[in-house]
Computed example of a mutant assay.
Amino acid sequence: MGITSKAETVLNSGLEDARYAGRRAARAARLANGDVSARVRDLLDDLEHALSNAKSASDVEALRAEIGDKLRQARSDFGDVRANLRRRANEVWEEADGYVHERPWQTLGAVAAVALVLGFIAGRS
């Protein structure tokens, strides 16, 4: 096995690890986005239902209390989602940072390969 084959193997391994970490980060973002979207839709549906059922002044007060409760719950839920997304992003960042520190030459090779490809693409434009 020549130097070129070894370098290619190391580079492919490094790129595959980087792709894996990127896919994990993207999946976490998609899950968080879907969760937030579903919660917002549920909140809006609940509010629309409550507004359509309000008939008298006492209903308005009950509606105001119900809306306040739902908004407090939504704020709490969104805070939980944000904290979960931040935790997941930190995990991916720590994994990437550890990879760079454990394999600096592979990382340098991967960055050089990406820069070479981007330079080639930019040069053709």
Rank of each mutant, 00 (worst) to 15 (best):
M1L: 03
T107E: 07
G2Q: 02
V114C: 13
R41D: 13
R87V: 02
R88Y: 06
A89Y: 05
R82W: 04
S125G: 15
G14M: 00
R124Q: 11
I67S: 07
L108Q: 11
G123N: 09
R88T: 04
D46S: 14
H101C: 14
A110W: 04
G2R: 00
K55C: 04
R41P: 01
N90T: 10
L31A: 09
S37I: 11
W105I: 09
T107W: 00
K6G: 09
K55N: 11
A74F: 10
L71H: 05
L85C: 03
I121Y: 05
R64Y: 13
G34C: 13
N53E: 07
Q73M: 13
R64W: 09
A74K: 02
A115L: 02
A110G: 13
G119I: 10
V111W: 12
L108D: 05
A29E: 12
A28R: 00
E102C: 04
H101Y: 07
E48Q: 14
M1I: 01
R88G: 02
V10P: 04
H49Q: 08
Y20S: 14
N33D: 13
F120L: 11
E95N: 05
S56D: 15
G98Q: 06
E95F: 09
A112R: 03
A54E: 14
G14N: 00
K70A: 12
L71C: 15
A57V: 08
A89G: 11
E16W: 00
R75K: 14
F78S: 01
L47R: 06
S5R: 04
L43I: 01
N12R: 06
A74N: 01
W105P: 00
F120P: 00
V114Q: 12
N12V: 06
G123C: 08
R82C: 01
E61C: 07
A115Q: 12
R30Y: 01
V117Q: 08
E8R: 11
V111P: 05
K70M: 02
D35R: 06
G68P: 05
L85Y: 06
E48T: 15
S76N: 13
A57E: 14
S56V: 08
V111R: 06
G68C: 06
N53L: 13
V81N: 11
A112V: 04
V117T: 05
L15E: 14
